[in-house]
């Protein structure tokens, strides 16, 4: 369950969990995101009960045969924002952050808008 990168000196293995946390952390920095939608209810539920911060929530990393990396992000956005633009911002931010922190080239960042939150002031 690791993502492998080869360098001249050897290889670097990064666990999928780490990639998910970095992607999630990058996403919640984006304006318009109010939350992530859990895809692993049991795991995320227990983490919530323990009161831990859970940046990897709602992020699924898929690795295909020929080293292609795809990231699926399940987000909840704020009502009244331009959702297409928010989603686009998340894509570029996540791609940039992973390249910066891990030197990881991502093939695709797919956004699933799972919810929209209406806040009445």
């Amino acid at each position: 369950m690791t993502i492998e990168m080869k360098t001249n000196y050897g290889k670097i293995d990064v666990s999928k969990e780490v990639v998910a946390v970095i992607a999630g952390g990058a996403a919640i920095d984006c304006y318009g995101i109010v939350g992530m939608a859990s895809q692993k209810q049991l795991k995320d539920g227990i983490t919530d009960l323990l009161g831990k911060e859970n940046l990897g929530r709602g992020v699924i990393i898929r690795e295909l045969e020929d080293d292609e990396i795809h990231i699926d992000m399940y987000i909840i956005v704020s009502y009244g924002t331009k959702i297409s633009e928010v989603a686009h911002n998340v894509q570029s931010k996540v791609k940039y952050q992973l390249e910066q922190m891990l030197g990881l080239k991502v093939d695709s960042v797919n956004i699933f808008v799972q919810g929209v939150r209406v806040t009445n002031p």
Binding site: Y31, T81, E85, N89
Partner: peptide, 13 residues
Amino acid sequence: MGARGNSGVILSQ
């Protein structure tokens, strides 16, 4: 309708 980028979305809000 015309919001572009992070800052554009913030401005619209």
